[in-house]
Amino acid sequence: MRTPRPPGLLVLAVLMLHLLLGREVQRIQEGWVSDGPPPMPPRMQVALVREMQLQEPPAMRAQPPRRSKPRQTPVPLAAPALPASAASAHVPEATPVPPGEPVVQAASAPAEAASVAMAASAPADGEPGPEWPLSTRLSYVLTGNYRGPVSGQAQVEWLRQGRDYQVHLDVGVGPGFAPLISRRMSSQGLLTPEGIAPQRYDEETKVVLSDARRASVFFLGTQVQLASGAREPSQRGAQDSASQFVQLTWLFLTGREPLQAGRTVQFPLVLPRRQYAWQYEVVGEEMLDTPMGPLASWHLRPTRAPAGGDLAAEVWLAPSLQFLPVRLLIRQDADTYIDLMLRSAPLQAAPESTNGIPRRLSQ
């Protein structure tokens, strides 16, 4: 005769099953997957062979005349969000909403949609021009706070092959050989005459003793697919969490945006959960103590906080290092943040060559 199992154990098993299923449903709704598609793209293989030397900021080159078509009107920060089902609907007039709400706006004219399509179909075997930095790796010391002080390491890799690019931001909290928490934020896409054009963004987080979680964003011409799978109208010039820093470098390196305290730089920003009309305020010049010595840098910070736990970053760009980021302060809230400070001289690829003949670096 079998001994009946205590009913309490059965109830506990059912409760545990419900909790596990609920957790998986929540992760799927938020766009996080542990082992399903799509896989992250393979990292470009580029040899980084020389230390970058400090140099005088390059003289701003004269820019070619802009196209005659009018510049797109910036989206007001107070514009309301559009649901995914409104991708083909008429876009209403913007109305005020409470601070912190995301904004989305459809392309304003067929000409803009055609321009995005042309940029996305640019040949991948051509050279984008000398204004883009060579492939570069920047290594950082990490400090911060997450339920107490944390430390670790991080690196940013900017990789180029023809018109194709990748940006990887790898962060590890804890010992380098066995981090307790690690996150990789990766962007890939094309370099165009109007700057970086992301095609996809991947964010993968690994906590010790648990499965990796991944969220992906896809840029589909006039639409963007968020991590949840929802599609929304996208704006021209949109950047993702990783590409935005190199876009800022390019804007200042080429003189398309002047560096002046009090000015703002704005572009659409697509984060895994929602879109924003994002703005950075140029705070001013600051001296940073680094292993390369004191570095003059320009401090930029967001003019607003993101919503729903999205991350916001302040950045310090060094003119003597091609306006690359020498410090990044990434916040979730006032008590949760990481601070990345340049650890050593950046490593770069050798000067690009044509038919085996090295190109001279512009001074």
Score class of each variant (00 low, 15 high):
E157R: 10
R200Y: 01
D164T: 11
G148S: 07
G174E: 00
G148L: 02
P175G: 05
Q161P: 06
L169E: 05
Y140F: 15
V167F: 06
S135M: 09
D164K: 06
S139A: 14
R137K: 13
S182I: 04
P193F: 11
P133T: 04
G144P: 03
L159Y: 09
L134E: 05
P133N: 04
S187Q: 01
L180Y: 05
D170R: 15
V173N: 00
T192V: 13
L169K: 04
G189Q: 06
P133G: 10
Y165P: 07
A154F: 01
S151D: 13
V173E: 04
A178L: 14
L169C: 06
A178S: 15
L169F: 15
L190F: 02
L142S: 04
E204L: 14
A197V: 04
E157Y: 08
S139H: 10
I181S: 00
L134Q: 04
R137I: 07
P179Y: 12
R147F: 13
S186M: 15
E203I: 07
P175C: 08
S139M: 08
S182E: 11
Q153S: 13
D202N: 09
E157A: 11
M185G: 10
L190P: 01
S186K: 04
D164L: 11
V156C: 02
V156H: 09
R200P: 02
I181V: 14
Q166L: 05
Y146H: 06
Y140K: 11
L159W: 03
Y146Q: 13
S139K: 12
Y140D: 07
V167G: 05
E203V: 09
D170Q: 15
W158C: 10
G172T: 03
T143P: 01
G148A: 10
S182A: 15
V141I: 07
S135Q: 02
G144W: 05
G148T: 13
L138H: 00
P198I: 01
P175W: 04
T136N: 08
L191I: 07
D202G: 01
Y140C: 03
Y140M: 07
I196N: 02
T143Q: 10
S182V: 08
P179F: 11
S139Q: 15
L191G: 03
V141P: 00
Q188I: 00
Q166P: 03
R137C: 11
Q155T: 02
A154I: 00
